[in-house]
Design a protein around this nucleic acid. Sequence first.
RNA 1: GUGCCCGUAGCUCAAUCGGAUAGAGCACCAGCCUUCUAAGCUGGGGGUUACAGGUUCGAUCCCUGUCGGGCACGCCA
Length: 580
Amino acid sequence: MPHFRVHLSQLLQQTATQVLQDNNPPPIEIARTKQANHGDYSCNLAMQLAKTLHKNPREIAQMLIDAMPASEYLDKVEVAGAGFINFFIKNEAKRAYLNHILRQGNRYGASNFGGGEKIQIEFVSANPTGPLHVGHGRGAAFGASLANVLAKAGFAVTREFYVNDAGRQMDILALSTWLRYLELNGVHIPFPENAYQGEYVKDMAKLIYQAHADRYVHQPENLLDGLPESAYEVAVTTDEHLDRLIANAKKILDQDYTYIHHFVLTEQLGDCRNDLMEFGVEFDIWFSEQSLFDNGLVAQAVQLLDEKNHLYRQDGALWFHSTQFGDEKDRVVQRENGQFTYFASDIAYHLNKFERGFSRVINIWGADHHGYIPRVKGALQALEQDPEKLKIALVQFAVLYRDGKKAPMSTRSGEFVTLRELRHEVGDDAARFFYVMRKSDQHLDFDLDLAKSQSNENPVYYVQYAHARICSVLIQWDGDVASLVDADKDLLTTPDELALLQRLIDFPDTVESAAKELAPHLIAFYLRELASEFHSYYNSTHFLVSDIPLMEARLALVTSIRHVLRNGLELLGVSAPEKM
RNA sequence: GUGCCCGUAGCUCAAUCGGAUAGAGCACCAGCCUUCUAAGCUGGGGGUUACAGGUUCGAUCCCUGUCGGGCACGCCA
């Protein structure tokens, strides 16, 4: 079965090369039309050629049409407006397409757009220092849906979570947990305000306490070494004090520090993984930042930059000359104290991604990281990699609304809404759908009341309901769906039915666009429109009629709609219930 | 202050990377269940696409400026 849009594109390509002779035509773009009287597809090629050919675009369009070979799928081709070429697909061809959908079933919508290209998509990558919050949720939903879309469009997709298990934040979490643990053992040291305040820290301390009692209570009196007397009474708030506490804790605990560190990391990562799994978000690879250090890849990447003369030393630190690659200032890769910065391991990580043979790499970042892009791309360029292969999709913040008011959120005070709370409150389906209803680079107003409402206002139910209705009809019909390929599709003649056919035909193109533009929201919009057209059709037309051939034709259409609804919802990680 | 993103119906958002008469949902008004699920459908009003210029066959989209909002400007991650 032909892909109409591709077919037309080839037809026009062939014609254009012939008509233009030595001039090679610009890329042919076939678009869907908005209005029925413009046909089904249109092309603006003639208008684009008007300038180079010094001719009236309508004239060029007519020339192209006259030279175009006949197509068995076309009813007619017209010149319209300023010089559009409008294509009218035969209704018979659209009807025949239904069998293609029925046979493809859950594969329908797939294409070879990606050509099996290896593509890596890294998302969420939250610090394993606490529960995921609603901001991570958007990255997770967006990334997972996009990955599904890319896979459907023919890319070989690897989903990856970068685990920041090497940095200072992990040390702060380990320290925080140990302090809570000491409290449980009756040792009270003022809890730093800039340590992790959340209840989950106390929970982890409790677990250690329950399993090991006082085993990790070594000389806590030395914990405040090097700190002023006041530290015994007042909670510290500065980074210096916190770092001193960490250093002291490491000294006091020695080997046992590794245990605490490992314990909190495993706990948090496990929690994060479960949370995401329940949300329908899974990864192929959990990539450890620490492993980059352990394998010497960070040192190697920095050395490589040095060999290519992109580093210099100043104030005791090692700087990358990123301004030479469009960054607004140079960046430190190795601190005065010898520690590599987060940026250094990130360079190593991205270099590693490219060395693993991905032809394209997609990072999904929170929009607050946008300033970070030039330095990463700069580093890649400095290492003689093509920065164009790295695409960074920025996801804006999600703001929750309850009762028409902003829900308060602040990580610092520990008063933030976790992803888990959100999922439990509105349900996984609604959460997944709402997160991708907006373009990713737009702020998202997440209306909790709307997401929760089990009513006609809720777009998730609207789409799912269409699916459930179809299931219900098919159950009452009680026939063999596979037999519907034999139905006489020519009995589908109403404007409703023809519009639905075209909508179904559009699905693979929509998936392709969503892949090309990294825009899974297109799927959400498409599904709403398809559901809308279906509901309308459902209300105006009875399917289970006594005229058997007519009934089977309609059931063939409706079954195809069910396939597309299901496949589309699956891309978004939303369930397709058979009953509601 | 500098850089990036954004500004579309009363509200929340689309608009197939420059295309044809800018579209949906919510809200508001008026209707539709003895029939496959009313979590549904039908009809109606709503716009100088923040503002002012520019580029061209053609601009919500590209360029310049102004106004308004968000984010980022660490030897943090």
